[in-house]
């Protein structure tokens, strides 16, 4: 008998997972996919330009994709939060790897589905909306690619963190993970800005994963006027791809810690 992975056992574990938690999965997915439609579809239905249409699309990213994904992901190991359910789940005859993969597969399916649905709906509704608008009037714009990339980085890291949080914290895992993520995010920005301001004699907005925005003094006209130049420092393409790979590495690290935590969980 293979003690690490067996496809038949894995299939039964997946079945058990869906039988036990399928209803919750359907409710959460239904709620957030419904919200996605409510926010994105209005732009496609109106014959007039809706000034708030683009805002709704921007809002859907954090409100539905990020929030929905994190709420869903933070329930992945919910059966291990109380001793009675945790004992039942731990003693199901499957390997630790199979149990881990069961949660991972479900969370990946939902996360990818939600992000994919957002992108598909976003492009589809913008195109459809624009086709209904007068030729010479205002048109809706797609969300800029760099912003989508930046969001994807945050999404990948946060999903990994909520996945870990769901096995790491027994109580209030969502709130605790969200709090830690927020603090880490703020601290990273502050630290990054402080470090870059010591490196260059300029005010630098060095938010992780995106090109730096530099605001440097170019001349001082006495007595008080200060002229500043603002420009964006783009990384070489290769470096930018390496930066985009960083969230994936962080996510893999978070998965590995989740696996270890599951392995070490005692009841």
């Amino acid at each position: 008998m293979n003690q690490t992975f067996d496809l038949q056992r894995f299939t039964i574990l997946l079945k058990l997972n869906f039988v036990e938690k399928g209803r919750n999965y359907m409710l959460t997915s239904g709620l957030f996919i419904g919200l996605l439609f409510i926010l994105l579809v209005p732009t496609a239905l109106s014959d007039e330009f809706l000034p708030y249409g683009a805002v709704l699309h921007f809002m859907a990213l954090p409100l539905v994709v990020l929030l929905g994904g994190s709420v869903f992901t933070s329930s992945m190991f919910s059966q291990y939060t109380s001793p009675s359910t945790g004992i039942a789940a731990t003693l199901v005859p499957g390997s630790i790897l199979e149990k881990f993969l069961t949660a991972l597969v479900v969370y990946l399916c939902f996360s990818v589905l939600l992000l994919g649905m957002f992108l598909a709906l976003h492009y589809f509704t913008i195109d459809l909306g624009n086709s209904r608008l007068p030729e010479n009037g205002n048109k809706y714009q797609y969300i800029p690619k760099p912003m989508l990339w930046y969001f994807a980085c945050i999404y990948i890291i946060s999903q990994g963190a909520f996945f870990l949080g769901s096995i790491y914290f027994s109580k209030f895992s969502y709130l605790k993970t969200a709090g830690i993520l927020f603090l880490t995010f703020v601290l990273t920005i502050v630290l990054s800005s402080w470090l870059t301001s010591r490196l260059v004699d300029a005010s630098v907005n060095s938010v992780p994963f995106v090109p730096w925005q530099v605001s440097a003094a170019i001349t001082k006209v006495p007595p008080i006027k200060l002229l500043r130049a603002r420009y964006i420092v783009y990384f070489p393409e290769m470096v930018q791809y390496m930066i985009y790979a960083l969230p994936v590495l962080v996510m893999l690290g978070l998965w590995y810690i989740s696996f270890l935590r599951l392995k070490e969980k005692e009841f």
Partner: peptide, 29 residues
């Protein structure tokens, strides 16, 4: 916690948990 161990040891804790379905579903899963 290897599968070979778990499928040959059954532990009934003091505080038990049973999932929200009927006996036949419980058996089939």
């Amino acid at each position: 916690r290897q599968p070979g161990f778990l499928q040959d040891v059954f532990f009934i804790p003091e505080e038990i948990y049973l999932p929200p379905f009927n006996i036949s579903k419980y058996l089939s899963v």
